[in-house]
């Protein structure tokens, strides 16, 4: 009987488990192994270098800069996303007419790839020519046209990168918040109303916000992890035929060029970088979880 249960279990779980071992556990183990070897242009290295790759990567200005830059990026984009997607959710959840229409409009960018959004942002909305959309709007207010991604000083490329990411991801988090809002029992609002709470800020502060706690933690955590893993829009908006510029470089772009770039594949160093990045993300996620769980 027991062996039959075992067989049935593995009949269901076996195919997935094999894949998970082969394409998640094996790569992590192999990569950790590579990170201690001189693995330039090879996946079966022989020369053990100890912590050499880690020392290299932790003393490389470019890598440290990208971790630092993306910590600042995360510190900006995460709260902005949380607040704006919550505002959209509250707006859409409250209106009575055309609710489905507005929900669709804000959610539609989710269907768009980061590559296509990069194209629209780089070559149309924030194109450096006077007829670009952003420059046209600036012109209405009598302001000078800007080069946007075409110049480093002032670093207006951040406006381009941040607005693209917000446009792409706000709808997704808005849907999460709407789902959570609809889970808050109506009788809580009725009770608050009977107790004389004003329907605006007081109700929001004492009923809505506590009811959203779980969703807030979810959105924050997902968003934080995603911010450190930014790649697509940075690569496509700032990269060109000469490669990637030496600023605003996401950690993943750094790892991409180090381990797979045309200038020699250093898989040992790339693996060490992946390990360090994973640890940074784990640490930041843990810290933010601590802060959130603190009683208010």
């Amino acid at each position: 009987m027991r062996s039959r249960t075992t067989r049935t279990f593995w009949l269901f779980v076996g195919p997935f488990a094999v894949g998970l071992l082969l394409f998640t556990y094996l790569p992590i183990a192999w990569s950790s192994y590579l990170s201690f070897f001189d693995a330039r242009n090879t996946v079966t290295p022989t020369e053990f270098v100890g912590l050499g790759n880690y020392v290299d990567i932790l003393t490389d200005r470019a890598f440290l800069d990208s971790i630092g830059t993306f910590t600042v990026f995360a510190a900006f984009i995460v709260p902005t996303t949380v607040v704006l997607s919550l505002v959209l959710a509250l707006l859409v959840n409250r209106i009575r007419v055309a609710r489905a229409f507005f929900r669709s409009v804000f959610f539609l960018p989710f269907a768009c790839s980061y590559v296509v959004a990069s194209l629209v942002w780089k070559m149309s909305l924030f194109s450096g020519v006077d007829s670009g959309v952003a420059n046209t709007v600036l012109g209405w207010f009598g302001a000078d046209p800007q080069a946007w991604v075409g110049t480093v000083d002032p670093p207006l490329y951040w406006v381009v990168l941040v607005t693209a990411r917000l446009w792409l991801q706000l709808g997704f988090y808005m849907i999460l918040f709407i789902a959570a809002l609809q889970r808050i029992p109506t009788h809580l609002y009725e009770a608050a109303w009977i107790d004389g709470a004003s329907p605006g800020w007081q109700t929001f502060r004492h009923i809505t916000l506590p009811g959203l706690r779980g969703a807030l933690v979810a959105v924050l955590t997902l968003n934080l992890i995603n911010a450190y893993q930014a790649f697509d829009e940075f690569y496509n908006i700032l990269g060109d035929s000469r490669g990637y510029p030496p600023f605003a470089r996401p950690p993943l772009v750094y790892l991409y060029y180090t381990s797979l770039g045309s200038g020699g594949q250093d898989l040992g160093r790339g693996s060490a970088g992946a390990v360090v990045l994973a640890l940074v993300i784990a640490l930041v996620t843990l810290l933010s979880g601590r802060v959130l769980r603190r009683p208010t």
Binding site: I28, L252, A274
Partner: peptide, 9 residues
């Protein structure tokens, strides 16, 4: 983060 190791495999 696993894209480098997965590439290796």
């Amino acid at each position: 983060v696993t894209f480098v190791p997965s590439f290796v495999v």
